[in-house]
Computed example of a mutant assay.
Amino acid sequence: MGSFTVCTASWRVLRRGNNSCCYKLNSFDLQLFNGEKTEEATPKRKSEARKKGQVAKSTEISGVFVILAAFFTLKLLGTTVYNELSRYMTGIFSGIFTADITIQTVQLLFWNVILVMFKTVLPILLVIMVISVFVNFMQVGAMFSTEVLMPNFSKINPITGFQRLFSKRSLVELAKAIFKVCIIGYFIYRFAIVQTADIPRLISMDLTDSLRLTGSLIIDLAFNIIAVMLILAVFDYFYQWWEHNESLKMSKEEVKEEFKQTEGNPQIKSKIKEKQRAIAMRRMMQEIPKADVVVTNPTHLAIALKYEKRMSAPVVIGKGQDFLAERIKQVAREHKVVVVENKPLARALYPVVDIGDVVPPELYQAVAEVLAYVYRLKKRLS
């Protein structure tokens, strides 16, 4: 038996020796078969994705502004929060050993806790909520989609989940997280080195000053970290926008198919137009017997005119050229409608009027002469 060798060049068979041959494969462009998505998403594709809740959105942007709002509000209301908490704690610890433990005192303690939380925490939570809604609105606009709330059992499929775990998106998110931790860690380290001289002073301070200095250092550190996170979040937003557009890209075949669905299949549209023309032609031919005169070229053009006293000017009820012109003249003769040969008038009328239009004023005189001739002819024949 001869030996077979597979090569990547052509499908030609080359004989070597007695029975051995070499099959060679032609190289070809795989892009012709894999439906590579190279076309920008159409407005319809983007609209459908938006209805499904698929939009370009960066959670980093939302998170950074929420943290910034929280610390900024805390910085503004820090003194008020501190005084409120210290007053509450002082009252609690000064009377905890003298008050009788009853249901009423426990209820009073509970409502005092609620009141303090309302005064200290609620303003910060309200600011965070408003900023969060505003930032998300600025990213995606007004959008409400119920599809993201529908259960999707493919998300709990272990095979699909394993594939998502090692997908390109997951690797990018992992790289972003590692990079963010390294950058933020470096800034924390640098801030700690700079503030090393102030930390020993906490030992010699009283509790109030020590807490105030500690809070100030924490807020300064937070703003430094937020500044770094904001820069990273801007880059993340542009990446999410790019990645979203890439995910919506379409293949040439998808664009063609969508065009067919949106605009209709060209063959079907052609048949519809053909039927519409046929219906319009039948309707026009039914009106020809009502015409007063048919003006001809005499062989290439034919225009059927009708005039009644209630009309402001004669009306075109039919027109055609070549074969259709012959058909109009034939129907006119069958129904004893006068056919008048007038080349200048036919050539002047045909390009400026459509079926249902009145004769333009500049052609009133010429049309009136033709109609007068027709009326005299009919009067003589009658």
Results as ranks from 00 to 15, higher is better:
Ile219Arg: 00
Trp11Lys: 07
Ala222His: 09
Arg333Ser: 15
Lys119Gln: 11
Leu248Asn: 00
Leu345Met: 11
Leu149Trp: 12
Tyr186Cys: 13
Leu149Ser: 14
Leu30Ser: 13
Lys336Trp: 05
Val116Tyr: 04
Arg190Lys: 14
Ala70Ile: 13
Ile225Thr: 13
Val116Leu: 10
Leu301Asp: 01
Ser247Thr: 04
Glu173Gln: 00
Glu369Asn: 13
Ser154Met: 10
Ile103Glu: 14
Ile159Cys: 03
Val66Trp: 02
Ala372Lys: 12
Cys21Ser: 06
Phe153Asp: 02
Asp209Tyr: 09
Ile231Thr: 09
Met281Pro: 05
Phe118Ile: 08
Ala177Trp: 02
Arg169Ser: 07
Leu25His: 11
Ile226Ala: 02
Phe137Glu: 05
Ser86Asn: 03
Gln330Thr: 04
Val6Ser: 06
Glu36Asp: 04
Ala227Gly: 12
Leu77His: 13
Ile279Pro: 06
Phe137Ile: 05
Glu147Asn: 14
Thr208Gly: 04
Phe187Arg: 03
Lys46Ile: 10
Leu381Asp: 04
Gly17Trp: 03
Pro314Thr: 07
Leu126Trp: 03
Lys46Ala: 05
Thr80Asn: 04
Glu254Met: 01
Glu253Pro: 02
Ser47Pro: 01
Glu246Lys: 04
Phe28Asp: 08
Val293Thr: 10
Ser382Ala: 08
Val6Trp: 06
Gly63Ile: 00
Ala313Asp: 09
Asn19Leu: 12
Lys176Phe: 01
Thr8Glu: 07
Lys57Ile: 06
Glu147Asp: 15
Ala325His: 01
Pro158Glu: 11
Phe238Pro: 02
Thr42Gly: 01
